[in-house]
């Protein structure tokens, strides 16, 4: 054994519960989320609105802790220095050291994270001087090389631009450059391409892939777009109503999903080039987190709903085989019955 740190996973989230509001009216956005990420791994966290995917992503940076939210459970991150810290228990001062240096985040709308009154150069250089203790000169050089690496055609011009002068795709590149400034071991990408056009989206995904290859940083890709998942990730976590309902290798989960929600979701999307194949809509609506159904939260919309069982107890996340987990009490009988 060369060392415990290398064998230790990069991230261990254990029974994460995030709730907003005071007790009688509180809304639980993440309900006992547990998962692990290894170094250099790309994992997709998929879900619809209200699934808790974004809350989970934010919790990893300790960004839901203040205000009305309460965070329970543990989020253990192995830091660059080999120490392991629990993000859920760290004070704000220590969290700030962790953010950017160990874990960084990019968002759907880069405009909201960029300061409109400073040039791009000022903002990237500031990030570099803070995170890497570089001099202004070094930072400028590094900023240029980062932007070049991100496929910015004229990085010099980009540095002297203000955020509003850039296109959406360009702003997202700048955000990525800033996120990379601290050389984080984990990048949380929360719907980074949702606001972009498809051809620009393809550019950004391509860049993220290349970066991951070069730097070896792990990426947690939070998205609602199943299509994007297979472009980027090896492993997928499917969330529904605040819980992980299926977890497994992307190729196999998408080829043969085993949790009824994942199955229904796959069948509800038309496929390009698949003209003639019918889609099946999922009935009903995404549940309201303040009034969750009893038992399995998907049961009111599930084609395999069994009264008396599915609505009686909350199903556990069961290990179906190594690396594949399913939250459904009927998965075994459904598979044996060929459903």
């Amino acid at each position: 054994m060369t060392g415990i740190t290398e064998a230790a996973p990069l991230l261990v989230v254990d029974n994460l519960v995030v709730s907003f509001g005071r007790a009688p009216r509180s809304v639980v956005a993440a309900r006992g989320v547990s998962f692990e990420m290894r170094r250099q791994e790309v994992v997709a966290l998929v879900g619809e609105s209200g699934s808790g995917k974004s809350t989970t992503g934010l919790a990893l940076l300790g960004l839901v802790g203040d205000g009305a939210a309460s965070v329970e459970g543990s989020i253990r991150i192995t830091r660059k220095n080999g120490m392991t810290d629990d993000v859920a228990a760290l004070p704000e001062r220590r969290l700030r050291q962790l953010r950017g240096n160990d874990v960084a985040m990019i968002f759907q709308e880069p405009m909201s994270s960029l300061n409109p009154i400073y040039t791009i150069g000022t903002q990237i250089i500031e990030a570099l001087t803070v995170h890497r203790r570089m001099s202004q000169r070094e930072a400028r050089g590094e900023a240029l090389s980062l932007l070049t690496q991100l496929g910015v055609a004229s990085p010099e011009k980009c540095l002297v631009s203000y955020p509003h002068q850039l296109s959406g795709g360009m702003r997202q590149r700048v955000m990525i450059a800033m996120a990379l400034s601290g050389r984080p071991a984990l990048l949380i990408a929360d719907e980074p391409t949702t606001a972009l056009d498809v051809t620009i989206q393809a550019q950004i995904i391509d860049i993220l892939k290349a970066l991951q290859h070069e730097t070896g940083m792990a990426i947690l890709f939070v998205t609602h777009d199943l299509g994007l998942v297979s472009e980027l990730a090896e492993r997928v976590l499917v969330m529904y109503a605040g819980q992980i309902v299926e977890e497994g290798p992307v190729d196999r989960v998408f080829a043969q999903p085993r949790m009824p929600y994942t199955q229904a979701l796959m069948r509800s999307r038309p496929r390009l080039g698949g003209k003639g194949t019918k889609i099946e809509a999922i009935p009903g609506t995404v549940p309201n987190l303040a009034a969750l159904p009893q038992g399995c939260s998907f049961h009111p919309r599930c084609p395999h709903f069994l009264p008396g069982r599915c609505d009686a107890t909350e199903p556990p996340l069961e290990v179906a085989e190594p690396g594949w987990k399913i939250r459904c009490i009927r998965w075994r009988e459904l598979e044996e019955g060929g459903l």
């Binding site: 055609a153 795709g169 498809v198 051809t199 393809a202 998408f254 080829a255 390009l272």
Partner: peptide, 22 residues
């Protein structure tokens, strides 16, 4: 290019990445 940029959950097609912005 537009078609190749559409992400598809069940296949990994070769993609044409257009350069630059509109």
């Amino acid at each position: 290019a537009l078609i190749s940029a559409v992400p598809d959950p069940s296949s990994r097609r070769k993609r044409i990445i257009l350069k630059g912005d509109v």
